[in-house]
Design a protein around this nucleic acid. Structure first.
Lengths: 199, 199
DNA sequence: ACAAAAGTGAACTGTACAGTATAGTATGAT
DNA sequence: ATCATACTATACTGTACAGTTCACTTTTGT
């Protein structure tokens, strides 16, 4: 790859990083291309040299974010580690979306856009199966005689529902201020889950 | 009250209704005062005759919404009705925010604004204690020997967390399209809850 | 009947912003 | 050396929108 190309991708990274910062802070509508260019340390026209439009730039960011989420390696079922420990891993992976500031910003951004663009939700989310790893893990645990349940799908919904409902959304809406109160709730969630689905 | 005053409040209602429609559909930023006036069937200047500014109008709507939520009469604990039935009542009351289209619109609006205005969340939410009724109900059920738990606060968080995480947010983000799939999940939620906290 | 209150439409001001145009600069490949 | 590529700063165009002004009409209390 030539230096020019390298430079090009470097600038592109700068722009994406700047855009992520601005979008994450203000949401889509309240973010201006001028501000993005300024934060990226780049002239506005350079932004347009790399991305056709504001929507385009936004799409790129969302795609990257989702691709990155999909690339995470699945948590494998272990016969030796305790269920609690493994469930904590799953919850932790889910919570990473809101504990890490950059991820939290992107999560907020996505949520805000999703709220008024249900079509965009469908378009964006088709092909991203979020609970798949956990469902596989559930089957493995059942096979191992450690869990009991009828529908793995429903069981996964309950688990992620608790994590998101009790924690994720709270952290998003307080922009991280509720993070210190996460631990006892997380413990209770796993307690509740194992009470119902553990053997 | 004079007819003029009556008319005034009538117009005000029209404006509020129009504003709710427009805000609910597009969110705050993407809603224009021109559009609101048009939908309300009122001239733009009349809107400004009744409300100082767009922010002001929005605030009024939010206040009304929250006041209305607070005015709901609490669900009292009953020794005769089954716990499941009563828990369904609480869940139903919570779900009302998203099943009824008008309420859903306002919930979406509020959520979208909250995402990028954490200060506004605090300012708006102080004084609104959402789980209070349920916590009282929990104590009554414990007193009655039907439930066991250590922290009522934590128990309430788990219950509402499940309802919101599994259902509310889903319905909001799909704008109601996931409503048909609510029932089995709701049943499971209460099953899980009673499994852990029931005696 | 008449004055006050409340309303109307249309045009206006000022600002913010998406996207473009222009003129000129730095850098690397050949 | 020179040319292409990517960049910069600045200024521009066109549009959308919050909020106002104005000249005029309708409604209502007395």
């Amino acid at each position: 790859m030539s230096n020019q190309k390298k430079n090009k991708t470097l600038k592109e990274r700068d722009i994406l990083e700047g855009a992520i910062k601005v979008f994450s802070k203000n949401g889509f509508d309240a973010s201006s291309m001028d501000k993005i260019a300024e934060v990226a340390g780049v002239s506005k026209i350079t932004v347009y040299n790399h991305f056709q439009s504001k929507e385009n730039l936004f799409q790129e960011i969302v795609s990257d974010f989702l691709r990155q989420s999909d690339e995470k390696k699945p948590i494998e079922y272990s016969k030796t580690r305790s269920l609690k420990e493994q469930l904590l891993d799953f919850a932790g992976a889910e919570m990473y979306r809101v504990t890490e500031p950059r991820q939290r910003g992107l999560s907020k951004l996505l949520a805000s856009v999703f709220l008024f663009k249900p079509d965009f939700v469908k378009k964006t989310m088709t092909g991203h199966k979020f609970h798949e790893d956990f469902i596989n893990w559930l089957y493995a645990a059942k096979e191992d005689g450690k869990l009991k349940f009828d529908s793995a799908e429903l069981t996964a919904q309950i688990f992620y529902g608790m994590v998101e409902g009790c924690l994720t959304w709270n952290v998003l809406l307080t922009d991280g201020e509720s993070l210190p109160y996460v631990e006892p709730v997380l413990t209770e969630i796993i307690d509740v889950f194992l009470c119902r689905y553990g053997c």
